[in-house]
Simulated scan of single mutants.
Amino acid sequence: MAQNDQRKRAAAPAPRRHHRTLKERLEPYLLIAPTVLLILGLMVVPIAIVIGYSLYDNVVTNPNPVFVGAANYVTILTSPAFWGAAGNTLVFTVASVVAHMVIGMAFAMMLNSKTMARVPRAIFRAIYILPWIFTASVVAVLWRLLLDPSGVINYLLTSLGVVHDAVPWLGTASTALLAVTVINIWSGYPFFMISLLAGLQNVSTDLYEAARVDGAGFFRQFASVTLPALRPILYSMALLDLLWTTQQFTLIWATTGGGPLGATEMLSTFTYKLAFNSYQFSMASTSAVLVLAASLIVAVFYVRRQRKEAQ
């Protein structure tokens, strides 16, 4: 009997250990459950609904939409307005990303220079980062005032004799795309500047000293030391900025609204107008799905790059 009692007492804790182990296994999933539910509710489900809308005609406004399959995609992909918006988006994006990289690199190298005193360096850092602090709406209002025919920029250009008459930069088809691109460049370069400045501060000064000993000048040091050290940062930031710029909406909508005559029509404003101006929700959903597909391609490259850096 005594041996049986000892065996029972020895076997009793086993179910508790099993219960405790099961709880420990479930605990991580319970912790991430709220985040998973939010992602499902705010991202996965809406994306699935939009994809579904793109396969039907007369959705939202019609209680009995008609399934049309890929017909909406054929209509959008053969639309001159869509390709016009795509072309504007391409020009706007490529010019913005390249300018962000060049200006951000130039300012980062200037602020990282040892020849500049500490106090002026701090002042310039505060000044150069200001565009990144403003929201897109504030930037749009500010530049609309500056580029107004009676604004500061036209006053300076006419005073210097660069132009004879005031130019409506945002109201002329030939200058509107250039104007919004300049605005986006001005508001976005601090992101590159800050990131590249952090990268430059992590580059060992011994590498530059060794390059100088070998007789390398400024440009040779830049090509052989600076660029290789910053290449991972530049690549990741370029892909990230590419995603952000292609989806720029607030700045365009608050400055030109996609006009004049579609000169600044982007894919974002094109999709918005289809949905809320023309009430063509099926076509708007189709356009949004195409933009999502293009963004996913860029996102895949970005994630793969991040994994390579982590390894």
Score class of each variant (00 low, 15 high):
54 S>T: 11
79 S>W: 07
2 A>N: 08
13 P>N: 13
199 G>M: 03
94 V>F: 05
8 K>A: 14
3 Q>R: 12
117 A>Q: 08
105 M>D: 05
68 V>G: 11
13 P>C: 12
39 I>Y: 15
111 L>C: 03
39 I>P: 02
35 T>L: 13
30 L>Y: 11
121 R>A: 04
203 V>W: 05
85 A>E: 10
272 Y>C: 07
229 A>M: 10
161 G>E: 03
127 I>L: 15
165 D>W: 00
11 A>G: 03
151 G>R: 08
81 A>Q: 15
112 N>G: 10
245 T>H: 01
260 P>V: 00
289 V>G: 12
141 V>I: 15
36 V>H: 03
149 P>V: 05
184 N>L: 03
62 N>M: 05
194 I>Y: 03
26 L>E: 02
50 V>H: 06
268 S>C: 08
25 R>W: 13
303 V>E: 04
290 L>S: 09
65 P>T: 06
209 E>N: 13
226 T>A: 05
1 M>R: 04
223 A>G: 13
83 W>N: 09
220 R>F: 03
274 L>V: 09
139 V>W: 08
63 P>E: 09
130 L>G: 10
51 I>H: 12
300 V>Q: 08
127 I>C: 14
259 G>W: 00
181 T>A: 00
124 F>L: 15
15 P>V: 08
38 L>D: 03
241 D>K: 04
266 M>Q: 04
298 V>Q: 03
32 I>N: 02
215 G>A: 10
286 T>K: 11
301 F>L: 14
281 F>E: 04
87 G>V: 02
152 V>E: 07
135 T>Y: 05
234 L>I: 15
163 V>N: 00
170 L>D: 01
309 E>K: 03
